[in-house]
C-alpha cells in the first residue's frame, strides 16, 4: 500500500484511470438520462415526480460515499503522514459538498409536490444537512491557516471527528423524529419497482465515474500547487 504514497507513481495510475472514468461517466449519462427522463414509467403514487429520485438518491449516496473516502484517507494521512492520502481527501471535499448540496435541493423539489412542503425535518434530510455543514467546516478549516501543513492536519482530524459524529447525528434525528411523529411527515414508505432500478443504477454509475474523473483533475491541480510552492521557495532561496 505504501507504494501508492509516492506521488509520481500514484499520478501515473490516476492518469491511466482518468480516460476510463471520464468515458464511462459520459456513457452512463448518455444511456441513463433517456431512461430516467423518458422511457421509465411514472410511479403509480408519485407520478412524474419520481424522476427526481434519479438525481436525488445517487446524489445522497455520493455525498455519504465521498465523505467516507475523505475520512479514510484522512486517517491514512494522520497515521502514516502520506501526503497523497490527504490530497485525495482535500480534492474530494468540494465534489462531495456539491453532491450533498444537490441532494438537499432535489429533496426540497421532491418534497413540495409530494408532501406539500419544501423542507421536512426528516431523519435522512436532516442528516444530509449536517453532513453538508461538516463539508463546509472541513473546507473552511483547511483554508484557514497560513501554514499549509497545519491546515491539512487540522482538516484531517476534523474529518475523523465528523465520521464519529455522523452516525450519532443520524441516530439522534431518527429518535427525534419518532418523538415528534405527529407533526413530521416521513420521507419513507415507497418501494422501488424494477423498472426504476435500471436508471437509478445507471445514474449512480454516472455520478461515481464523474467523481473519479474530476478527482483526478483536482489531484493534478493539488500536486501542481505543491510543486509551485517548492519552486517558489527554491527560487526565493537562490534569487
Amino acid at each position: 500500500m505504501h507504494k501508492f504514497a509516492n506521488p509520481t507513481f500514484f499520478m501515473k495510475i490516476a492518469n491511466a484511470v482518468f480516460p476510463w472514468a471520464a468515458g464511462l461517466s459520459v456513457l452512463c449519462f448518455i444511456v441513463g438520462l433517456p431512461i430516467a427522463l423518458v422511457t421509465s414509467p411514472p410511479d403509480y403514487q408519485q407520478g412524474e415526480t419520481v424522476r427526481i429520485m434519479y438525481v436525488h438518491v445517487p446524489a445522497a449516496w455520493m455525498g455519504s460515499m465521498v465523505y467516507a473516502v475523505m475520512a479514510a484517507s484522512s486517517a491514512v494521512y494522520l497515521i502514516w503522514r502520506h501526503t497523497v492520502a490527504h490530497i485525495i481527501a482535500r480534492a474530494s471535499a468540494p465534489i462531495g459538498a456539491m453532491f450533498t448540496g444537490l441532494c438537499l435541493v432535489t429533496g426540497m423539489l421532491w418534497g413540495e409536490p409530494m408532501w406539500g412542503t419544501w423542507w421536512v425535518w426528516d431523519a435522512r434530510l436532516t442528516s444530509m444537512l449536517i453532513l453538508f455543514f461538516l463539508y463546509l467546516g472541513y473546507i473552511a478549516l483547511g483554508d484557514a491557516f497560513e501554514d499549509q501543513e497545519r491546515g491539512d492536519r487540522a482538516a484531517a482530524l476534523l474529518a475523523l471527528v465528523g465520521s464519529v459524529n455522523l452516525p450519532i447525528v443520524h441516530f439522534s434525528v431518527e429518535w427525534w423524529n419518532t418523538l415528534h411523529q405527529s407533526s413530521i411527515l416521513s420521507m419513507q414508505g415507497f418501494s422501488i419497482s424494477t423498472e426504476m432500478v435500471v436508471p437509478l443504477l445507471l445514474m449512480v454509475g454516472a455520478f461515481q465515474f464523474y467523481y473519479v474523473a474530476v478527482l483526478v483533475i483536482r489531484l493534478r491541480a493539488e500536486l501542481l500547487a505543491a510543486k509551485i510552492r517548492t519552486a517558489r521557495f527554491n527560487l526565493a532561496a537562490t534569487g
Binding site: I130, F133, G137, L141, F145, G162, N165, I168, V173
Partner: peptide, 27 residues
C-alpha cells in the same frame, strides 16, 4: 484546539461545532 492560530477563528469554530453539538441539543 483545531482552530488555534487560524484566521477567522470565532466564526470557524461555530461552523465546526454546531454539527457536533446537535445530538446533545436534541436529547
Amino acid at each position: 484546539a483545531l482552530v488555534l492560530g487560524s484566521r477567522r477563528g470565532g466564526v470557524l469554530l461555530s461552523l465546526l461545532l454546531l454539527p457536533l453539538y446537535s445530538p446533545v441539543l436534541i436529547f
